[in-house]
Computed example of a mutant assay.
Amino acid sequence: MEKFYNLIKKIDSVVAFAEVGGSTQKDQSKDFDFLVVVTDHEATLLYFQKIFKTKILDDSIRILNYGDRPINLAVYTEEELFSKINLYLSTYSPLGEIREWAVGYWIPEIFIQDIENSHIIYDLNNQLNNIKQNICDTKMRIFNNFFNKVLMDIEIKTNLLSEAIPNSLLEYTLRNSIILSLYRLESLKSNKVRNFLNIDNCENDLKKLTVVELKNFSHEVKLLIGKLL
Results as ranks from 00 to 15, higher is better:
D27K: 15
H41L: 02
M152D: 09
G96C: 00
S60N: 09
L57P: 00
D58Y: 07
E97Y: 10
K132L: 02
A16W: 01
W101I: 05
K207N: 08
L180H: 07
D33I: 01
S168W: 12
N148H: 13
L161S: 04
T173Y: 11
I63H: 01
L169W: 05
T44W: 04
R62A: 10
D12R: 12
V75R: 04
K208G: 02
E42C: 02
K192N: 09
N145Q: 13
N144Q: 13
G21M: 02
S83H: 09
N145E: 03
K192W: 00
H41F: 10
A74C: 04
L206P: 08
G104M: 03
N195Y: 13
L87D: 03
D58F: 05
Y92N: 15
I56H: 06
F48R: 03
E100H: 06
N195C: 11
T158Q: 14
W101Q: 09
S218F: 03
A102W: 02
G67C: 08
V14T: 12
A43K: 15
L7M: 15
I61L: 09
S190E: 14
T91W: 11
D114Q: 08
R62E: 12
L87F: 04
R69H: 11
V20M: 08
I61P: 01
G21V: 06
Y88E: 07
L35E: 05
L46D: 14
E203K: 11
P108D: 05
K207G: 07
E109A: 02
